[in-house]
Simulated scan of single mutants.
Amino acid sequence: MKAVIIGAGMGGLSAAIALKQIGVEVEVYDQITENKPVGAAISVWSNGVKCLNHLGLEKETAALGGIVDSMSYIDGFTGDPMCRFSMQPLIDEVGQRPYPIARAELQLMLMNAYGIDDIHFDKKMVSVSDGPDAATVEFADGTILSADLVIGADGARSIAREYVLGHPVERRYAGYVNFNGLVDVDETIGPATEWTTYVGDGKRVSVMPVAGDRFYFFFDVTMPEGQPYRPGTAREFLAESFAGWAPGVQQLIVALDPATTNRVEILDLDPFHTWVRGRVAVLGDAAHNTTPDIGQGGCSAMEDAVALQFAFVEHPDDLHAALAAYESARTERAGELVLRARKRCDVTHAKDPAATAAWYDELRSEDGTRVIRGIVSNIVGGPLTS
């Protein structure tokens, strides 16, 4: 069997590696000409780490991951701790340490694991269609190819999704913009092995460690969609947006590099449950575009890849049965994570100011139990964490 995967992101490459493991002939195509991932880093929670381990990347993943021993919430204005607690209970319960990882390094790890020289770059898909004996893909350069199976891991603006659903869908603006990047570890901002989050007025500033003595940082700013922004002005914009915030936040603004700080308008997509049309299936952001508020977008894409592999192991001689099993295994779980992230997003970013104020009050009496319970509930339920 030959599978063509459109998209060399986390989901597409994880699927490519997973299918190769069981003897499927795989070709990967992507429109990018070089490895430039969106966003500086990603929280790979324990379910995602278990997927990478399953793909044979346990040592490589651990080498790239930051060590998060504790988690804290800080009053954004006073700098006073609201709560601080160990992550060990979570690790003990789910059996795997989570790892924040620089996104470019994770991407390169997956590319190398698949075979970076075997990835077809600068190939933009413009259409996909199903047929009785094969699915067909057409690229912008006029190339047409066929395969037994096409996996559309082509991201949030997926062409494959439009084909599978039979119509386009509109993504929903989540109400905030995320600024993110990497800085050297600085303990005046937060402890070197802690995920530190400053909160206040429906805004959020966070740092977490990644390998190489660096912090991944992000700022969330609520604002209307489509506001003008001049690249390279992140420091001035954030200094104004977070004027009066705690010294740690001010130090982070000074430390960041405006030239490499990303600005991303956050959107998501209402869950849907049709992921397969004939020999064409969607995976990753194409199937479940989510906000980053519970850190499960990339992890869910990796779960897709493992579930796809399991489906073909269960139905090695029946492609359509395998794809039906994949769809059945994933749509409810992935859709639930989208809605959980949306709910957390609304509380974090003060869609209802009273609910956000109540959350801040809860944090001031938090011993870690409720937060860890919530994170664990996101982690369990996938193909390797049932």
Rank of each mutant, 00 (worst) to 15 (best):
K343G: 10
Y326H: 04
H349S: 11
T348C: 11
A329T: 07
K351A: 13
D317S: 12
D346W: 05
L337E: 04
F310L: 13
R342M: 10
T331S: 11
A321Y: 05
D318K: 03
G335Y: 02
L363Y: 07
G335F: 05
D361A: 15
Q309L: 04
V347F: 04
D318T: 08
H315E: 01
A322S: 05
V347K: 06
R364K: 15
L337H: 02
R330Q: 12
D367V: 00
A329N: 09
D361V: 06
D346N: 14
K351P: 02
A334F: 02
A355H: 09
R364T: 09
A324N: 11
E332F: 06
Y360T: 13
A357F: 09
L339W: 02
T348D: 13
S365L: 11
K351T: 14
V338G: 02
E362Y: 02
T369V: 10
V313R: 05
G368F: 07
L308T: 04
P353A: 10
H315G: 03
P316M: 03
T356F: 05
H320G: 09
A311Q: 03
Y326G: 01
E327I: 05
A324D: 15
R342H: 12
E332M: 08
L323E: 10
A354H: 10
G335T: 00
L323R: 02
E327D: 13
L319P: 12
E366G: 01
A354S: 13
S365W: 03
K351G: 02
P316G: 01
R344W: 10
V313A: 06
R364F: 05
A334Q: 00
A311C: 06
H320A: 14
R364P: 07
A341M: 07
A357I: 11
Q309V: 06
R333V: 06
R342V: 06
E362I: 00
T356N: 14
T369A: 15
T369H: 11
A324Q: 12
L323S: 09
F312N: 00
T331P: 06
T356E: 07
E336P: 06
T348M: 15
E366C: 01
C345G: 15
D352K: 09
C345H: 01
R364C: 07
V338D: 07
R330V: 05
F312V: 03
A354E: 15
Y326Q: 04
L319E: 09
R364S: 06
D361P: 02
T348P: 00
T331G: 03
L339E: 15
D361H: 08
E314Q: 15
G368M: 08
R340Q: 15
V338S: 01
D352V: 13
G335E: 03
S365M: 12
A334L: 01
D367T: 12
A329E: 06
A341I: 04
